[in-house]
Design a protein around this nucleic acid. Sequence first.
DNA 1: TGTTTTTAGTAAGGTGGCTAACTATTTCTC
DNA 2: GAGAAATAGTTAGCCACCTTACTAAAAACA
Lengths: 191, 191
Amino acid sequence: MQRLVLKELPRYECLVEAAKQFPDLNPSVCEAFMHLIRAGDEVSRVMDAHFADHDITHGRFLMMMLLIEKKGTACARPSTPAELADLASVSRATITGLLDTLERDGFVRREPGTDDRRQMSVHLTPEGQAFMHGLLPEHFRLVNDLMGNLSEHERATLAKLLTKISTKAVACGVARRQETSAAELPATIHI
Amino acid sequence: MQRLVLKELPRYECLVEAAKQFPDLNPSVCEAFMHLIRAGDEVSRVMDAHFADHDITHGRFLMMMLLIEKKGTACARPSTPAELADLASVSRATITGLLDTLERDGFVRREPGTDDRRQMSVHLTPEGQAFMHGLLPEHFRLVNDLMGNLSEHERATLAKLLTKISTKAVACGVARRQETSAAELPATIHI
DNA sequence: TGTTTTTAGTAAGGTGGCTAACTATTTCTC
DNA sequence: GAGAAATAGTTAGCCACCTTACTAAAAACA
């Protein structure tokens, strides 16, 4: 499902106009920011359309990607709902909902855990595995196509710049949580 | 509302491993792609958290941004639900839902159109206008902060690279629609 | 042993989509 | 001018993907 975004980015001159009204608005910063939002949205739409061709959604795809059997041992594979929730940064309740639909469609199988009876162990079924093997070649070709206008060097530059932004975004999140925690201290602490 | 994304991107060596299984997978392409998805998601989360502080959501914010009074005449302002829907590339039904909640909260006012009795004219109320004027300074400062690790030159580079990707994504969408249209022609046409 | 924490899942609610159908109005065609 | 077609906004129903609060059971801790 898509977030609302503008079909067209505002013209630069509109940003400059708006900056007269809102002095904190830096037109070139805003422009770059909006390019990021837009590009992210548009590639997501392309991927989602491909998923829809196969009657699957982004969320379910990600679950199956996490569960897919991997050759070699370099990359761990989660197996409990809590592990999936942690990797995807969502609540267990969300995972339950996703797994419910995947189980309903025969793509995953849940079994009680062996060590801990509270736990469930989650696996792709052979059907789920086959489904992913059928989907992924074209998925990766689509990714290649989307990035096809960028040289290897440009892709590396892009990754570097985006990492700078992500780092900043994460820092905003951390600073925000500290701010929130401080606000929640009883007033008497400040004596 | 966020889409499911991985908390951590897979390590490059995991991509290389996976490429052995899926030959279409190009590790460096995939890596850049995932950086885009992640960065987009993370900045969205930061913005959404700020919106939540003011009891508003991304979709409602965008509606109000489109409706906000603008000094000068360089930038048109939409005024009907259909115009909003067109600018945001969603259905009129979706706009109805968003406007319902904004009207409920006193931020927008709907009036019958003057020229065409099918239409509604939509405006920010003074309360809505004041709300946005209260929110936007910090919003723009947040944007500046998020992009703060990038120089002016880097921002221009980023915008250029992202535009290349957006262009490709849009082309994928166009190609897809042509493909779909061709598939829908009656079989007899091919004689 | 008793208390606290953890696990998966349920219930309830929200956001932001969609489609199809509807009603009223406007535009188009003959 | 009459009727058909298109348009505008809304309604109803559905979906995906969240959240929090809660439950029962199990595990960990003191």
